[in-house]
Amino acid sequence: MADTPKIEISRRGFLKGAGITAATGVIESANAFARDAKGALHGAQTIGPDAQPIKLHINGHELAVSVEPRYTLAETLRDNLGLTGTKVVCDRGSCSACTVWIDKVPALACMTLAVDAVGREITTIEGLSHGDTMHSVQVAFVKHDAMQCGFCTPGMVMSCAALLERNPNPKLDDVKHAVSGNLCRCGTYPKVFAATLDVAQQRAQASGLVNLDTGTEA
């Protein structure tokens, strides 16, 4: 996208958010659409069938886009907003390559209509990094060589990062469960598990020793 929005989420804010999510635990993570959609349409309001302007909250920014109701969030992110980090593979909800967070919960962009995401807080893989500084899960994926062709990687990272937000001390089975929907045909799973557990361990060590705001996990 020509005018890439500046990511405003601060590392401190991100980690604070992680703590809060962890405290409230499972129920918070159970419904991608539980929260009232602020700014969503009021009353029985009809959109379409022709393209209409909507506003989406993506990675901390409000972005205007004109779409038909039949456009999925994945198509809108990639084709209309240039956020091509979100991948589309099966386009049927089977492979989870298109995983984004909707209101902090991992969800499928290919099975979400863009018009249904109005008023929701969307986080894509582009929203995880902080400028040129990669998210700790991304750093660990590089360190552990947790990708081969790389096509499943954005979705895989979104699943692992969400797990660490709600459970800072996951066990191997928790990581397996978190990526059980993410299909990797290269078979990188063991390295994905190692990378995610490594981040958890580093964070646990860092929380006792160093200021997390320095963000230097690598």
């Binding site: 029985a44 009809t46 069938p49 018009v115």
Partner: peptide, 19 residues
Amino acid sequence: MNKFAFVDCKTVDQVLGQL
């Protein structure tokens, strides 16, 4: 996918009125 209109409802009555 075919083109369609999307009607966002807030209440059951609104839903029943749209079926």
